[in-house]
């Protein structure tokens, strides 16, 4: 029994097939196309702000779910409260903007660092427990922070903080956010990809399969978990900071509700937990579906129901998510096989 056969497989034996060769170029074209979308702003008489906004939201959630996937997917520690890091980033950037007049584009990386440090400290405390105890502790964390912010007038209390618009006209106002969010999303995906293929990532996946065996195999599980938790906080903090000025407010009712914490979990599950592409696919699908249903039916109740129903269907019938299920069936297109 003492043998440490942590069976983490690497599914890269198909890399040679033709789909994989062209993958790099196709992905490059997609990124280039995304980078060029704002240019069309000058080509059309109607501005593209609706589409830019939609893409910004998708980039935001890709960042959220991709980052969440590092601890929740690779390491298997389900956090229902990663929105605390978005709140930390958002509030920090908002305060620096309001008090010191530093734009969020400057403070966002700093907000990410702070979120990461806070994540490290919280991780040291909460990752000593696992299973249901850990999951519950992440909910407790959200509510503790929410109660503090609700009652802290310095941070605006329940009403939150209102931020000024950046001084650009309506044609241009979304563009800096578009590029910033796109950059953050791409970096977070690359970061996730890099972790997935590192020794560190291998260790995390061993932890998610059998922590005790991973420990006996010589993996410093404790430190790995805490680092994964902190790493997952970084880009969420950055995105939270950008988001605060994009929507021109931060308040506990937006950042610190359970639904915010649940969304990255849903997206990652839907797309495929523990895969690189899964959270990206999941985030895009959930946002498109949500925006569609909001424009068609309005009302947030239906959205809440929708999130719940999709989540249950995925859990009961496709626990490996889209990417995972397709791979299991051997039908995952090379374009989406980033693992």
């Amino acid at each position: 029994m003492a043998t440490a056969d942590v069976s983490v497989t690497d599914n890269r034996d198909t890399t040679t097939s033709s789909g994989y060769k062209s993958r790099k170029y196709i992905l490059g074209v997609i990124v280039a196309a995304l980078a060029l979308v704002p240019v069309l702003q000058w080509q059309t008489t109607n501005n593209l702000n609706f589409w830019l906004n939609l893409l910004i939201i998708i980039f935001l959630w890709i960042t959220m779910s991709t980052s969440w996937n590092i601890i929740g997917g690779y390491a298997g520690y389900i956090s229902l409260g990663h929105n605390v890091f978005a709140a930390i980033g958002g509030y920090l950037a908002a305060m620096l903007l309001l008090r010191l007049d530093i734009p969020v584009f400057v403070t966002a990386p700093f907000a990410g660092l702070v979120a990461m440090v806070v994540g490290f400290v919280i991780g040291l405390i909460t990752l000593r427990v696992r299973g249901p105890a850990f999951i519950i502790s992440t909910i407790a964390l959200v509510l503790v922070l929410r109660t503090i912010i609700d009652n802290w007038d310095f941070l605006g209390g329940v009403r939150g903080l209102t931020l000024p618009l950046i001084g650009l006209d309506v044609q241009l106002v979304k563009i800096p956010f578009y590029y910033a969010m796109l950059l953050v999303a791409l970096l977070s995906i690359y970061f996730s990809y890099w972790i997935r293929h590192s020794k560190f990532g291998l260790g995390l996946r061993a932890i998610s399969q059998d922590e005790i065996k991973a420990e006996t195999a010589g993996i410093p599980t404790k430190m790995y978990k805490v680092l994964a938790y902190a790493a997952s906080a970084f880009f969420i903090g950055v995105a939270g900071a950008l988001w605060s000025q994009y929507v021109t407010f931060v308040d506990p009712g937006t950042y610190l509700i359970i639904l915010f914490g649940a969304r990255p979990v849903l997206m990652t599950l839907l797309g495929g937990k523990g895969t690189v592409a899964g959270p990206v696919v999941g985030a895009a699908l959930v946002i498109l579906a949500t925006e569609f249903s909001e424009s068609q039916f309005g009302g947030t109740e239906l959205n809440v129901i929708g999130v719940g129903v999709v989540m249950i269907i995925v859990l009961l019938f496709f626990p490996d998510g889209l990417v995972g299920s397709l791979r299991r069936a051997g039908r995952l297109p090379a374009l989406l096989d980033w693992d």
Binding site: A262, L302, V304, I305, V309, M311, L315, L316
Partner: peptide, 12 residues
């Protein structure tokens, strides 16, 4: 996560 999703559905 199933109970979590149930809670969301009930809330909605």
């Amino acid at each position: 996560l199933t109970t979590f999703a149930l809670a969301l559905i009930i809330e909605g």
